[in-house]
Nucleic acid binder design. Structure first.
Length: 112
DNA sequence: AATTTGACCAGTA
DNA sequence: CTACTGGCCAAAT
């Protein structure tokens, strides 16, 4: 069942945004935070994603850090899992980094 | 109650 | 490019 995720309204907003990330696109922790009106609070985003239940419908794997990389260590299972899911959606990794054009959807649309 | 930790970031040097 | 700093704040200890 659902563990109590957070009674906090911020996490609800964050999850809402993450759910809106288009397939094959990428968002950054800071970008999500900004859209939620939370400047310099990217850690909250990471924290919320961290405690998502396994098998959630939330596309957590489409969220990466500002360097364009996955925020897990390279040899971890989590890293491989996320990379696999992203590649499945057509994301191309170059030297452990995601192609820039993949995470510009926050900039261009209504969130500018 | 106080301190530490963490899937982070922007600025500066 | 890398390295370090200060900031932010919910959970865990």
């Amino acid at each position: 069942m659902f563990r109590k995720q957070s009674t906090n309204c911020r996490s609800v907003t964050i999850l809402k945004i993450v759910n809106q990330i288009p397939r094959g696109k990428i968002a950054t922790y800071g970008g999500i935070a900004k859209v939620c009106g939370l400047i310099n609070q990217a850690r909250i985003v990471g924290y919320v994603l961290n405690r998502l239940p396994t098998g959630t419908d939330v596309p957590w794997y489409r969220v990466i850090n500002t360097k364009g990389k996955i925020s897990f260590e390279k040899n971890t299972t989590e890293y491989k899992q996320q990379k696999k899911l992203l590649e499945k959606e057509g994301i191309v990794f170059k030297d452990g980094r995601v192609d820039r054009c993949r995470y510009d959807w926050l900039r261009s649309e209504k969130f500018t």
